[in-house]
Design a binder for these strands. Structure first.
Lengths: 235, 235
DNA sequence: AAGTGGTCTAGACCACCGT
DNA sequence: CGGTGGTCTAGACCACTTC
């Protein structure tokens, strides 16, 4: 399908990831890029803007477009994140299901989902395993009125892949609240940590493009293995 | 000076913060806003885009522009952050200076700053105090070739205010690496915590709009008092 | 079908950087 | 002063939602 500026951004992103341009070097000028992709200036700038937001490049008025130096290795980009599998760039992600059931929204959940009391929700508790090592524990709820069906096979793999590619839903935006939390004894065991250890905790509220909340989850990450990176642009 | 789309975004942001529109309600249509501010569609959309990025609103094709529900209270927005004073929305922020000296960049610092070995750097160690309670400990370096002068008065208050309003520098972007870290005995004392407690830690690399790194810092936050919020838009 | 947001163009002019 | 990015316009047409 033909949304030009997104396609161009994808091409440039791939070029950058493949190492076509090195840190600190210049991209072609906007004018050259306009000619190369045969688009207008605004369209070209929309494509560039996406790459700026993702933290790949920065623009300097009167000078050019530069590759932005960024530490990427070993960190999870918190603003791009849609599920672990994609972010960690390894297929070696699986889940051990600790709980899988349907519950009804209590007052707290109804508030978080902005839904009615007693709305049916899927509750999924998973130990996330990366490269055969325990990585995080995830407690998630899905609004059953939106995600009408889930099974063990789906949640053993990638729920997000199922939602976007199976159900063809469009994920719009999310709020992530990050803090540092104590682990319960059970969590310590599952993550193979020591008693009294803390975890990086992320509470994630995820919306479809139409503004409906379909997922509220909390993940606790092994604090020895996990760093988040966040890329900020000031305007 | 007259950058229309930014001015319009500021006006709308203020309206939203003042509660002119309530959560879930609609903003006027783009067409109405174009007429109201007497600008073209692209300009109007640029203004709206800024508010989308900041997490105030979301757009639904064919339907309208809606106020985005967001938990703001008590959380620090990690992607907007430029210094504590502004973010916490209280003037009651001050600093106790633990160290203030000029050092030369060793190998590690030179790498982080992308500067030469032995480049002179200001080193500032501060206990940040909010509402008379210890809030965080900040270890920061500033490239002395860019920030040529600092004194105790400046660093007791807001360094960022001095850089943007005093020196008239434009801050462009930043990388923030977030993790969970142990505290030293000294840090535990300063933050009035218990031995063995962990802290939320943020390592911040800050660039001017021209791509120069002027500040590399690490802040350790009292994990009982601090939550970060990050607003993500998927595209 | 009408309303509303999304994409794209072609061109004008401004602002900043470096020579 | 030439090169390069930044802002803005006016208008066309597409895509999705709502009734």
């Amino acid at each position: 399908m033909g949304i030009k500026y997104k396609e161009i951004a994808d091409i440039l992103e791939e070029d950058i990831l493949k190492g076509k341009y090195i840190e600190g070097s210049k991209l072609p000028t906007i004018e050259e890029l306009m000619k190369k992709f045969d688009v207008s200036k605004n369209t070209m700038r929309s494509a560039i803007e996406l790459l700026v937001i993702k933290g790949y490049i920065y623009q300097v008025q009167g000078s050019g477009i530069f590759i932005r130096p960024t530490v990427r290795e070993g960190s999870i980009n918190i603003t791009n994140m849609r599920g672990l599998s994609k972010e960690l760039n390894t297929p070696d992600v699986r889940s051990e299901i600790l709980k899988f059931e349907v519950v009804k929204a209590n007052k707290e959940l109804a508030k978080k989902f902005r839904c009615n009391l007693d709305t049916e929700l899927y509750y999924v508790e998973r130990l996330r395993i990366v490269k055969e090592e325990p990585f995080s524990i995830e407690y998630s709820y899905f609004n059953k009125e939106i995600i009408t069906y889930l099974n063990r096979e789906i949640i053993e793999n990638s729920i997000y892949e199922y939602i976007t590619e199976g159900l063809k839903y469009n994920i719009g935006f999310a709020d992530k609240i990050i803090c540092c939390e104590k682990l319960t004894k059970k969590e310590v065991e599952l993550l193979e940590l020591k008693n009294g250890d803390m975890a990086l905790s992320v509470e994630n509220t995820v919306y479809l493009t139409n503004g409906l909340i379909f997922d509220v989850s909390k993940s606790k990450y092994n604090s020895n293995k996990t760093k988040f990176i966040s890329v900020a642009n000031y305007r």
